[in-house]
Nucleic acid binder design. Structure first.
Length: 422
RNA sequence: GCGAGCAUAGCCAAGAGGCCUAAGGCGCCUGUCUGUGGCACAGGAGAUCACGGGUUCGAAUCCCGUUGCUCGCCCCA
């Protein structure tokens, strides 16, 4: 065993798995562009209070999962525990309310939570997310959901389901929670120990308990969508009609609640069909009260986060076609010390012209250099020996067709630089 | 925070107390082929058997502890 290993719950991403990331990132950026979302990058760490205020004091993220540390100046900082609060902080800090609303933003960044790692769960993971801030209109809810759905579709995930729900707002949620509590109190004796605690601390979460007896109770529990106030009801109905209009299928799941305190009204998740824990690949919702929590003026917002590791995992499971990273176009093989100098020079000229070229391991016989070319998957090998150097030529061997031509070196460089680089 | 399983080379892995100076495969390197790849054949390099302690005449193998990994619960992306 090596002395040092990557810290628990973190992972090196080796070249072989980069293609999934490049693929997802490229599609995410393209979908964001088509929907008019601009990229935002926030710092990797923030004032610890930001997440306490934003995500909610009673949440697991804040209570036991944050990486908190004091820096040398005595400031209490937190590694980014979540994507939305920093974006909202930036919105307030830079007065983004002065532009046309909503402000449409997306991000792609690492997120840190101290958890026990398991399949699809890490201490450092990466999220693509979007936030549309400053517009309460239900069409924005539909837009954000459509964006998420489009991304899943574009990267090639087929068997996925979109779940939606509305959990009301400050007007109607207290009443709903009271109804929920009185319903569950009648059966308190049948609840699992965890749920007995939830009854007081976080009644909404009673609904998504996985214990069979609690599940059964949850089926019959009062539904939040049946307790909405008039405004929330209208909003919810419109979201549903817009989703229907753009053909995004969704299943209303009255047990869908989310673990972050800031959600209001619309909440949604996307899950793949394959069973398993940690399966949610996208989760989000509206957070109309968050800005006030962070000290800003009341400003509505909605967004989602999506875990890149989980997307990559699902792409691999589904054997979705993901293009390989391009190999360098040329490998330069040299024979002898004099040709080596010429090879170094040729590699330099090709690279300067924007063409991909690598020099073969020079200690090897030509055969070994050819093997290396095969293993690397280059298009062609450029062979330089004493004859070529003397004549000012280069032997160009096309690896796919096994054809080989000897060309004047200058002509070859000119032609190679002229075609599209790779 | 709770529970379960696993730990032998870069990767996969045989191994059930002495025949282990640790099989085999992939990958890597070399040669067969003095300047030509994919195939084949031959050879080579690469392992304090996770770490520490114990039992035993003898431990990769049995026991204990530690660490790490994996999976599940909780929670979340």
């Amino acid at each position: 065993m090596p002395t040092f290993q990557a810290p628990r719950g973190t992972a090196d991403r080796l070249p072989a798995e980069q293609k999934y990331w490049r693929y997802i990132e490229a599609h995410a950026a393209d979908v964001a562009r088509r929907f008019g979302y601009g990229r935002i990058d926030s710092p990797m760490f923030e004032d610890a209070g930001l997440f306490v205020r934003g995500v909610g004091e009673g949440t697991d993220i804040v209570e036991k999962e944050m990486y908190v540390f004091e820096d040398r100046g005595g400031d209490l900082l937190t590694l980014r525990a979540e994507g939305t609060a920093p974006v909202c902080r930036a919105y307030l800090q830079h007065g983004l309310h002065n532009g046309p609303q909503p402000v449409r933003l997306y991000y792609l960044c690492p997120v840190f939570r101290y958890e026990r790692p398991q399949a699809g769960r890490f201490r450092q993971h990466h999220q693509f997310g979007v936030e549309a801030i400053g517009d309460p209109d239900p069409s924005v809810d539909a837009e954000v959901i459509e964006l998420a759905w489009t991304l899943m579709h574009d990267i090639g995930l087929q068997d996925i389901t979109l779940f939606t729900n509305s959990i009301g707002d400050a007007n109607c949620r207290p009443e709903y929670i009271a109804a929920l509590q009185s319903y569950y109190e009648k059966s308190a004796g049948h609840l699992c120990p965890d749920c007995r605690g939830r009854l007081e601390r976080n009644p909404l979460r009673l609904l998504d308990c996985k214990v069979a007896t609690c599940r059964a109770l949850g089926e019959e529990a009062p539904k939040s969508v049946e307790c909405l106030c008039a405004d929330c009801q209208t909003h919810w109905d419109r979201v549903q009609s817009y989703l229907a209009a753009i053909g995004v299928p969704n299943r209303v799941d009255h047990r869908l609640v989310r673990g972050l305190d800031y959600y209001t009204r619309t909440v949604f998740e996307i899950q793949p069909a394959v069973e398993g824990a940690q399966s949610t690949i996208c989760g989000g919702g509206r957070y109309d009260a968050l800005m006030e929590q962070l000290g800003g003026r009341p400003t509505p917002g909605i967004g989602f986060g999506s875990g890149i590791e989980r997307l990559a995992l699902n792409l691999q499971r589904a054997a979705a076609p993901v293009p390989d990273e391009p190999s360098p176009r040329y490998l330069i093989a040299t024979i002898g010390a004099g040709a080596r100098v010429a090879g170094v020079g040729l590699a330099h000229r090709l690279r300067a012209a924007g063409v991909g070229a690598i020099l073969a391991n020079g200690g090897r016989a030509l055969r070994g250099q050819m093997r290396q070319a095969s293993a690397l998957g280059v298009d062609a090998v450029l062979i330089l020996g004493d004859d070529e150097v003397r004549d000012g030529t280069v032997a160009v061997r096309n690896m796919a067709s096994s054809s080989q031509d000897v060309l004047p070196l200058e002509q070859f460089v000119r032609d190679a630089a002229g075609v599209s680089p790779s």
